[in-house]
Design a protein around this nucleic acid. Structure first.
Lengths: 138, 138
DNA sequence: TAGCGATTGTTGTTGCGTATAGCAATCCAT
DNA sequence: ATGGATTGCTATACGCAACAACAATCGCTA
């Protein structure tokens, strides 16, 4: 079947993103996490007492949609909330949350290594800067 | 805010894909098409009398989900169905569909050019092969 | 310091895309 | 001719993200 699509960088970008996302999702499901969960754990771990709003801004997730996400992490005993003032709550990892963060980190690093390994050496180190140029100048 | 995520190729891949997909969607909405619609028009145009099943396999869309997609294109007068045998139907573009396909193609090519233009020249031509390595070896 | 716009966390609702199961009709290879 | 695979389709359900709205609080400024 003739394919007029896959020579487009934009199309291949979407296909590659889908394929790799599915693979990462499968790996993370081993420890009962979704990709968003893992992102949140890493972000909270690196920024103790961040607010839900700040996380949403960083990940481009609307405030409203953060609620069920964080609730799930809290119900799972992975994060705690510290009232910072009468309005904002700082988020921190619990001991369990920190453990899970480390597990997620290990999975992600292994996954990223596997990704890079798939790319021919002469293209390999060009991918990240090219992608960042696309994303950040959007 | 410290960001432990964006130096990962996999993460940047997803972010870049989202950002660029949103941009393409905006451009295609000018002619009343979604990205899937445009993909289908290009694919059908390049492969007259393809079947819905074949299209689904090519685009990784389940048979069941092709139905409303093609129905919309048919209702819009962009495609026609030719019974190939008692079971399969070949899909072809109508005259209007061919016109719309050309419009979509122009938009897509302009969009892809804009994408590449954003990437520093020394990384530019490495993107496509790197992405294809990720996608096809998935 | 009183007031006002902006911010935070939250609820509820909606729409879109996709996965899943099932079904009748047809094809194709043995 | 028969059984397994394929095609097109219905119906349903789930997850994710957008949107509107709201009360409470913060922080700047007049």
């Amino acid at each position: 079947m003739h394919d007029p699509l896959s020579h487009y960088p934009g199309y291949s970008l979407r296909r590659a993103a889908n394929a790799t996302a599915a693979e990462l999702a499968a790996r993370l499901s081993d420890i009962g996490l979704k990709q968003v969960d893992a992102s949140l754990l890493l972000l909270i771990g690196a920024n103790p007492d961040v607010t839900a709003s700040a996380l949403g801004r960083e990940l481009d997730i609307q405030r409203a949609n953060m609620v069920p996400l964080l609730k799930r992490l809290e119900d799972g005993g992975l994060i705690d909330r510290n009232p910072l003032d009468g309005k904002s709550q700082g988020l921190v990892l619990t001991a369990d949350g920190e453990d899970r963060r480390k597990e997620a980190l290990a999975i992600i690093e292994a996954f990223e290594s596997a990704l890079l390994a798939r790319i021919p050496a002469d293209h390999r180190h060009h991918l990240l800067p090219a992608l960042q140029a696309l994303w950040r100048n959007a």
